[in-house]
Structure formats: structure tokens, C-alpha cells
């Protein structure tokens, strides 16, 4: 491999360019969020004066705070249900022989390629009839449709890597079945479960289509949908800067998760592809 100093300089410049590419739009939306009043029109990248005004506007608006509560609550609940159900299914897929196994995986695969809009519009109809329209449950259920296949694939890729023989080895050494599971398997499986949870959470947190088709009010509207309907402090003020502030707020959890779990996320994303 080209490990010469001269060769590395090129790659380092490339690496810096990538970081620039990845972070520039984030820096831009961050900068916008600190531009108060007419400063938004300064036609410059950075604000003339840094101001927290837009954050005040955003957090004093029910529209955003309720949407944030909806998004966090709905995303966490849906992620939890999805990962628990997927954990059981992925264990069966990775460890057991039973008829219908390929059917389960085939259905999961078919769902991931299906257009979400084609699922959302019929639900719009049904939810209105049975009263799930504009409720938390009315979003949690459809979220499972795309988060379950995702969790199942990430988890079964991880579970296939676990050296399950160690469980028997522990039992031979005198551990009970429960101890073997608790002390050997759980620590090995936990990182995979955790990664699946992060990826699933990202997918649900990002949803826009279900958010706008299946809600109509603050009762259940999640953040991405609320951003699209955000109107700022008054009906007449330009909502740009407050939208930027709200965008920054909802991007913070993403950045924290990415910073903390970079390696796990990369592994979770690519595990299935490499083995395929």
C-alpha cells in the first residue's frame, strides 16, 4: 500500500474535503438559526450579530414543543416495540431451522422496497374510519411496517456472528442455562441490539410521509411534519430563521448519537451488505 508521506498528503486533503462536504450544510443551518431579525438578509454565510432570539421563538411556540414531545415519544415507543419483536424474530432466523423462514425474510425484503406513500394513503382512509387518525398509536403502527424489517435485518446479521457454542461451553463448566444466557449471550448480543435500536430510531425520527398524511393537529404531529407547517412568531414574519433553529434542535440528538456510536452505526449499516 502507498504509505509514503507524499501519498498520504493527498488522502488527508481528501479526508478534509469530505468533512467540509458533510458539515457545510449543517454549519449553514446553524448560522441561520443565530441570525435575528433582518440579519437573515445579510447575504453572508455567518450572522452579523449572534442572537438566541430564534430559539426563544421556537421554544415559546406550542407548535414546536408539542411536536418535539410527539416525535420523541412516538419514536422511542415505536423503536422499542420494533427492536423487541425483531430481537425474537432475528434469534429464530439466525439460530433455528423452521419452515417459513425464507418467507419471513422475503416479506421483510418486499416491504423495504415498497413505496411508503402507497401504504400511507390507504391508512389515511382506514384511520379516519376507526379513529386512529391524528393519534400516537396511529403513527406507531405504520412505523412498525418499515422499522421491523430494518431491525430484523440488522439484528440477524449481528446474531449470526455470535459464537453461540460459548453458551454450551458455559453450561458444561457448570453454569445454569439462565446464567449462561445472562452472563455469556446477553453481553455478546447487546451491542447488536443497541445498534439496531439506533438505526431504527433514525429511520423513524426521519419519517415525513406518515407524519403529514396521518396527522392533522398538534395531538400527534411529529417534528418533520411540524417543520413543514411552521409559521414563525406571527403569521407575517419570515419563518426561515425559526425553522433553522428548530432544525438545529432536532439535529442535536442525531449528532450526539453519531459522535458516541460511530463505529457501531457503520458496522450495523454494512454488516448485511458484506455478507450478502
Amino acid at each position: 500500500m502507498n504509505t509514503s508521506r507524499k501519498g498520504q498528503v493527498g488522502w488527508i486533503i481528501g479526508a478534509i474535503l469530505i468533512m467540509f462536504y458533510a458539515l457545510l450544510p449543517v454549519a449553514w443551518i446553524l448560522s441561520l438559526s443565530f441570525k435575528a431579525g433582518d440579519d437573515i438578509n445579510n447575504q453572508k454565510f455567518w450572522p452579523t450579530n449572534w442572537s438566541f432570539e430564534n430559539y426563544d421563538i421556537v421554544f415559546s411556540s406550542d407548535l414546536f414543543t408539542t411536536a418535539l414531545r410527539n416525535s420523541v415519544g412516538i419514536s422511542l415507543i415505536a423503536t422499542f416495540i420494533s427492536v423487541v419483536l425483531a430481537m425474537l424474530a432475528a434469534y429464530a432466523v439466525a439460530r433455528l431451522e423452521f419452515p417459513g423462514k425464507s418467507l419471513i425474510l422475503g416479506v421483510a425484503l418486499a416491504i423495504t422496497v415498497f413505496p411508503i406513500i402507497a401504504i400511507a394513503t390507504p391508512l389515511f382512509n382506514l384511520w379516519r374510519t376507526i379513529g386512529l387518525y391524528d393519534t400516537w398509536l396511529g403513527l406507531i403502527i405504520p412505523y412498525l411496517s418499515f422499522s421491523l424489517p430494518l431491525s430484523i435485518y440488522v439484528l440477524s446479521a449481528f446474531f449470526r456472528e455470535i459464537p453461540w457454542e460459548m453458551e454450551q461451553a458455559a453450561q458444561v463448566d457448570g453454569a445454569t442455562a439462565w446464567q449462561a444466557f445472562r452472563k455469556v449471550i446477553v453481553p455478546l448480543a447487546a451491542p447488536g441490539v443497541f445498534t439496531a435500536a439506533i438505526l431504527t430510531f433514525f429511520a423513524i425520527w426521519n419519517d415525513f410521509i406518515f407524519g403529514i398524511t396521518l396527522t392533522s393537529s398538534e395531538a400527534a404531529r411529529p417534528v418533520p411534519a411540524a417543520l413543514a407547517f411552521f409559521s414563525g412568531a406571527s403569521q407575517f414574519a419570515q419563518p426561515t430563521a425559526p425553522i433553522a433553529a428548530a432544525s438545529v434542535v432536532v439535529t442535536i440528538p442525531v449528532i450526539i448519537l453519531v459522535l458516541a456510536f460511530q463505529q457501531k452505526i457503520v458496522a450495523g449499516l454494512t454488516n448485511g451488505a458484506v455478507k450478502g
Binding site: S102, L105, L109, G268, L269, T270, K275, G276
Partner: peptide, 10 residues
């Protein structure tokens, strides 16, 4: 968000 590896699993 991630890539299924159905064929490999089968």
C-alpha cells in the same frame, strides 16, 4: 437505512 442480506441468510 440498511441492507438486507436475504439470500445469504437463506
Amino acid at each position: 437505512t440498511t441492507i438486507p442480506a436475504a439470500s445469504a441468510e437463506v
